[in-house]
């Protein structure tokens, strides 16, 4: 499934990084501690987090994540948006919490 398909199915808002929406999603990872995400998220994963500062884009880009979903409607910094566009990392937003969004990801077949 591509990021675009997932966005449509779950009704997420694309905040930035539109150019990257054709990337394939392989699996998911949830976490707010950057070192754990770096070490454990697999390439192509959709990353669910409540962090929204610019360094999440560096993390996602360094380990080739497919996209980031910022949960709980957390406010996203302007720098994060600029960097997401630059790195073509789709930055998505939802008001749902991480648990609810993961449940939906599993329902649409992301394992």
């Amino acid at each position: 499934m591509t990021v675009k398909d997932m966005v449509e199915k779950l009704g997420l808002s694309i905040i930035a990084g539109k150019e990257g929406v054709d990337k394939e999603i392989t699996t998911g990872y949830v976490g707010d501690l950057l070192s754990w995400v770096m070490a454990n998220a697999k390439a192509g994963a959709v990353w669910i987090t409540i962090q929204s500062h610019v360094n999440i884009i560096a993390v996602a880009s360094l380990i080739n994540l497919s996209c980031i979903i910022v949960a709980e409607g957390a406010t996203i910094d302007k720098e994060t948006i600029v960097k997401a566009n630059e790195e073509k990392i789709p930055l998505l937003s939802t008001n749902k919490n991480s648990y609810e969004i993961i449940k939906e990801l599993i329902e649409i077949g992301i394992k």
């Binding site: 707010d32 501690l33 950057l34 070192s35 754990w36 070490a39 987090t49 962090q51 500062h53 360094n55």
Partner: peptide
């Protein structure tokens, strides 16, 4: 609070 400082940096460097 920004997600740094999990105390896993040096262990990760060693591991990878």
């Amino acid at each position: 609070e920004l997600g740094f400082g999990a105390g896993m940096g040096l262990p990760n460097m060693k591991k990878y």
